[in-house]
Design a protein around this nucleic acid. Sequence first.
DNA 1: CTGTTAGCGCCTTCAT
DNA 2: ATGAAGGCGCTAACAG
Lengths: 340, 340
Amino acid sequence: MTKAKNDSVTIRQVAKRAEVSVAPISRYIIKTTPVSEEVATRIGEAMPELKFIPDVNARRLATSKTHTLGMLVTEMHGDFLSPMFSGIEKVASEAGFDLLISSSARSGAHREFPSPLGPHNTDGLLVFWDSLSEAGLRYVDELGFPVVLIHQAPPEGLNLPCVTVENQAASTRIVEHLIEVHQRQRIVFLRGPQNNDDSRWRETGYRQALEAPGIPFDPQLVLAGDFERTIAQASTEALLAAGTPFDAVFSGDDEAAVGVLSALCAAGKRVPEEVSVVGFDDQRLSAYLTPPLTTVRAQTEAVGRVAAQQLVKLIRTGQADPLVLLPTEIIFRRSCGCPE
Amino acid sequence: MTKAKNDSVTIRQVAKRAEVSVAPISRYIIKTTPVSEEVATRIGEAMPELKFIPDVNARRLATSKTHTLGMLVTEMHGDFLSPMFSGIEKVASEAGFDLLISSSARSGAHREFPSPLGPHNTDGLLVFWDSLSEAGLRYVDELGFPVVLIHQAPPEGLNLPCVTVENQAASTRIVEHLIEVHQRQRIVFLRGPQNNDDSRWRETGYRQALEAPGIPFDPQLVLAGDFERTIAQASTEALLAAGTPFDAVFSGDDEAAVGVLSALCAAGKRVPEEVSVVGFDDQRLSAYLTPPLTTVRAQTEAVGRVAAQQLVKLIRTGQADPLVLLPTEIIFRRSCGCPE
DNA sequence: CTGTTAGCGCCTTCAT
DNA sequence: ATGAAGGCGCTAACAG
């Protein structure tokens, strides 16, 4: 168990080796002030010879910067985690930041501050929807601590930058597709959790699509999906049991669509012949469902990438774009009734 | 842009507030030495009143411990990331460790040391298969830096502890199932990447299953799957094109099974009537394939949990179990030919 | 059990 | 452009 302490080469040893004081070395590394040619080469040689690696912790103590980004998620975000992470990790490492990641036990158990991630161990936080309480957000805002929100608008009065996807227009288009191409009239909407902004915009898009063709909005057709398979399944079963007629389902997300498909299949309803089903997100799963799911593709990896870029910018310049919306696109597969 | 520096409450302020010196406070927090009742309560009050949060960096500088676990993955591990992470995160946070995670661009681009994660910013590393080069492993081993391997045996001569799943027996059993229950005789095996240990054991299990019933091993039936959908698909297409007869395929992992299913479907072969297909891992995806995939369930979340436990133990005591194998279980679905 | 104090390794004014 | 020296906030001897 060798400790870092024992085998660590310090800046002073390099100084001795290069026959200069420690200051030029620090400056040479940080590039904060020019260093003479001569000294530079001497340092440039001495450092690798001694295998000098600056001690991150000492540097942090001195500068009170961590060069670390924090990422907050909840257990619910499982299927988003992987692509999101890969986007974030990419820009973090390019920008020279480490990535500290923490998950709260369950959604709804909103985490308060102090959380495992904060000013003490990160320079800024990426906060995925629902992973930090409103109080927590207000707290970091007061602190002026850099935070960018992902798939979530800031609460009233706060100014935190946010990156998410374009929800409304895509929702309108996919519902229009159901109406115009597949002649659907009684279209169910399975909404997400109450506090989810994406879901609200998707619902707005849904209602808007009904307007032009003059299809009356029927509140009976709006059900709880909560972005959860089991809940969506239960809602669909209840609807079926109630005998409410419907010929299509726009599921607030693909996860819920899985539950819809199960319920429909169990009830002997044929998809898409009897009822069309479409979703939102285009999770990896979605292409493999039976039938393959027509859905709106959200570029999750890009969301992660852009969010991380915004955070780095915010940390470095104090500025970030208040809102960036990534474009979405409909992926036509068979569940809506399209041939292929 | 408030810096942590400005608003940070130091231990000295707490000392003043509690009318003691800094030492008892430190001891009170670290619990390294008993503190008198009186002082303890005074400190216990002063800390929250001042919202004192010990500065991690200062502590690290002083102790040369980071209280952080590192997790190394590659982009290929996408579908494992989420459950694995959730297991690791759980024990890390319970044990009071932060989790730093880093991904190498692609598998095969084995990362060398110094990598973004190492002794400078972590107390130990969780190394997922293929995410660190052999040279890197030898390096950390020499250093005596705590590392536990996940889904990978240590290279020759190294002693690094490893946690993975039981591969061989389960493979034997699932192939036996194909033979005994579904009367399959010409069973293809799609192996994983050359350097993957799991795949080797799965192949061993496969060959063993053929022995008892006296089915000759046919090298023509062993194809490259590489744990990649596209490669597995190509291999299956080639086999079909060659006209080599077969009535079942045991895919080295579920990912490859997806490619097999695609190729078979495209060729008009009916699964499971004409050919049975089984996989390994039980990814989330697998239950939703057409037909639902019979496969061996690897408890990925548990692997992550146990690996993190081992690492914490290794960090704290210098000891860990050399090898822990988590049990696996066959999940029967329809792709093998079972009714449900 | 408590207080004092010397580092931990680096960065950064401040003179030079 | 360079050197000297004082922190950054905490921990861990060492005295008391």
